[in-house]
Design a protein around this nucleic acid. Structure first.
Lengths: 197, 197
DNA sequence: CCTACCGATCGGTAGG
DNA sequence: CCTACCGATCGGTAGG
C-alpha cells in the first residue's frame, strides 16, 4: 500500500512556492537556480523535486495559484451585486489589497510567464484574459453610452497599467499605502486631474 | 600609426545592439546567450567581444542609449515652452511615439535592468528618475493648486503605468494605434471616464 | 607592432 | 532524503 503523505506536505510545498516566488521575482526565472531555491528553503535540491516535477512546474504553480486568487476576488465582488460605480471601486480596492500581499507573485506573473511552455502559458493567459474581461465590463457599466465599443478592453488595460505598474515603484513600507493608491487611481480614472472650473 | 576603425564599425555595433535588444526582450537577459546573439547578427561569438567587453556592457548600452532618447524628448518638448496642458499633451504623444519604435528596448529597460551591476544600474535608475521628475513637474503644472505635494510623483508614476504597461498588450500592427492610445490616456488622465452630467 | 577576426576550446555551473 | 554525479550549455578567451 502506498505510504500516505506526511502531514507537513502541503505546508512544505507552500513554503517552497513562497521562497521560489521571491527568488524568481528578484533574479528572474533563469537567474534563480534550483540550488538557490533549495538553500533559501533550507532543504536539499533533490527534495525540491519531491514536491515539484521540474522548475517550470514551480513557475506554473506560482502563476496559477495567483490567478486563482485574482479570479476569486472578481467572483466575490460580483456576488455583492453592487451598482456600477461601487462595483468598480470595490474591484480596484480588492486588487490593490491583493497586490500588497503578493508582490513577488505579481512580479513573477508579469516578468516570467513567458518562460512557460506553450500549453501552460496558454492556460495562464486565458485566465488573465478572464480578469481583463471582468474589468472591461465593469468599466463599460460606468459609461453605458460609450460610443466606441472597441475601447472597452483598451480602457481596462489602461486601468491595469495604473494598478500593475505599482510593482516597479510602490512599497508597502512607503508613505503612500496601497489603499491610498487605490483611491488616487479611482480619482484619476473617474474624474481626471484637470483643474475643475 | 594606429590603424583606424573600419568604416563599418559604428553601423555593425548598432546592428548588434538592435539584435541583442530583440533577444533580451523575448528571452530575458539570462535566457539569451551570446551565441544566440552572434547567430542573430550573422557574426562569430568572438567578434561580439570586439564590439562589447562583455554581456553586461551590451545590456547597459541598450538601456543607456534608450535613456538618451527619452531624455532628449523631455528636453525637446521643454524647449518649445508650451502652456501646461499643451506641454503635457506633447510629452505623452512624444513618449508613445518613441515607445512605438523601440518596443524591444522598452521591454529590456523594464525587465532586465536588474541584471546590471550596482554602478551601471544606479546610472540608469538616476536617468529614469530624471524623466519621472520631468513628468511630475508637468503634472503639477496642470493642477497648480494641488494640495498634497506628496502626490506629485505618485501621479507621474500612475501616468507611466498607463503608458509603460502598453508593452504587455499594445501592438503596432493592431487596430488601436500608439497615437490613438496617447489620446485615450490623455482623455482619462485629464477628464476621467465617469458619465458627465 | 597594431587591429580584426577565425575555429576551437577553456573553466565553471546550469537543470536534472 | 543524502552525496555524487551526468549531458549540455553557459560566458568568455586561448593560440594563430
Amino acid at each position: 500500500m502506498a505510504r500516505s503523505r506526511a502531514p507537513t506536505f502541503d505546508s512544505q510545498r507552500a513554503d517552497i512556492l513562497e521562497h521560489a516566488a521571491d527568488l524568481f521575482a528578484e533574479h528572474g526565472f533563469r537567474g534563480a537556480s534550483m540550488a538557490n531555491i533549495a538553500t533559501a528553503c533550507g532543504v536539499s535540491k533533490p527534495l525540491l523535486y519531491h514536491y515539484y516535477r521540474d522548475k517550470s512546474q514551480l513557475l506554473f504553480d506560482i502563476a496559477d495559484h495567483y490567478m486563482d486568487r485574482l479570479l476569486a476576488i472578481v467572483a466575490e465582488v460580483k456576488e455583492r451585486a453592487l451598482e456600477p460605480e461601487p462595483h468598480f471601486r470595490a474591484l480596484v480596492h480588492a486588487f490593490m489589497e491583493a497586490y500588497e500581499h503578493a508582490q513577488s507573485r505579481h512580479r513573477v506573473l508579469v516578468q516570467d510567464v513567458k518562460f512557460l511552455d506553450e500549453e501552460d502559458r496558454a492556460r495562464i493567459v486565458a485566465r488573465q484574459r478572464a480578469v481583463v474581461d471582468a474589468f472591461a465590463e465593469a468599466v463599460a457599466a460606468l459609461r453605458p453610452r460609450l460610443r466606441r465599443r472597441d475601447l472597452r478592453v483598451p480602457l481596462a488595460m489602461i486601468l491595469f497599467g495604473m494598478l500593475n505598474w505599482t510593482f516597479t515603484w510602490l512599497r508597502a513600507s512607503g508613505p503612500l499605502t496601497y489603499a491610498d493608491m487605490a483611491d488616487v487611481v479611482l480619482e484619476i480614472f473617474l474624474d481626471g486631474v484637470r483643474v475643475k472650473s
